[in-house]
């Protein structure tokens, strides 16, 4: 199972939205997998299987794992550290601008519906194929395309209004 951990952890993050909830979700997945370890051994694509279990777990207990809309100071600091690490040091001015844009994107994503945000993050950030998303969330490809289109359009609208693309 270990080869799939990083991808599953990222999925947990995109579903739950924050560290504590993502780790709870990941932990609960491992417990479920332990109970079904015999079944898991027979699965040809354990990564996809585990992803579906995680998604179903999230849906079943959405209130427990759901993303909190209001960030705490501590979580905001954590996000800042991540952005700093991401930005690099070659061009401080560009890095600062990029960091601001990512922050704006983060805020814009939080305004999307759960369905739209998940689809756009899985496809555009994680590189999931449409059929992979279909397999994960059980929605037709056409619906996923529509959500992706609307999510991007809504992000463009929010980011334009906020002056990010001025």
């Amino acid at each position: 199972m270990r080869p799939h951990f990083d991808r599953l952890y990222r999925l947990a993050w995109h579903l739950a939205g924050q560290k504590a909830e993502a780790e709870d979700l990941f932990q609960e997945l491992l417990i479920k997998a332990y109970v079904k370890v015999d079944e898991l051994a027979k699965i040809e694509e354990p990564g996809s299987w585990l992803s579906r279990i995680m998604y179903n777990l999230f849906i079943d207990e959405r209130r427990r794992f759901t993303r909190r809309r209001l960030q705490t100071v501590e979580e905001a600091q954590l996000a800042g550290e991540g952005l700093a690490a991401f930005a690099g040091n070659d061009d401080p001015l560009r890095d600062t601008q990029q960091r601001d844009k990512i922050r704006a994107l983060d805020a814009a994503l939080s305004q999307l519906s759960d369905e739209h945000r998940l689809v756009v993050l899985l496809h555009d950030t994680e590189g999931y194929k449409l059929k992979e998303i279909q397999s994960l969330i059980g929605v037709p490809v056409g619906t996923i395309k529509s959500r992706l289109h609307r999510a991007r359009a809504r992000l463009r609208e929010i980011l334009t209004q906020s002056g990010t693309f001025s």
Binding site: R2, F5, D6, Y9, R10, W13, H14, K19, E23, F26, Q27, L30, I31, A33, Y34, L78, A79, G82, L83, A85, F86, K101, I102, L105, D106, L109, V120, L121, D124, T125, R152, L155, R156, L159, T160, F165
Partner: peptide, 29 residues
């Protein structure tokens, strides 16, 4: 703007797990 949004999404950072988290999670599981 569309292209830039996609580029930003592609680089959207997701914090990784801490070094000991997976081991601890496996043990608890």
């Amino acid at each position: 703007e569309d292209l830039e949004i996609r580029a930003l999404l592609k680089d959207y950072p997701v914090p990784g797990a801490t070094a000991t988290f997976y081991d601890q999670a496996l043990l608890r599981a």
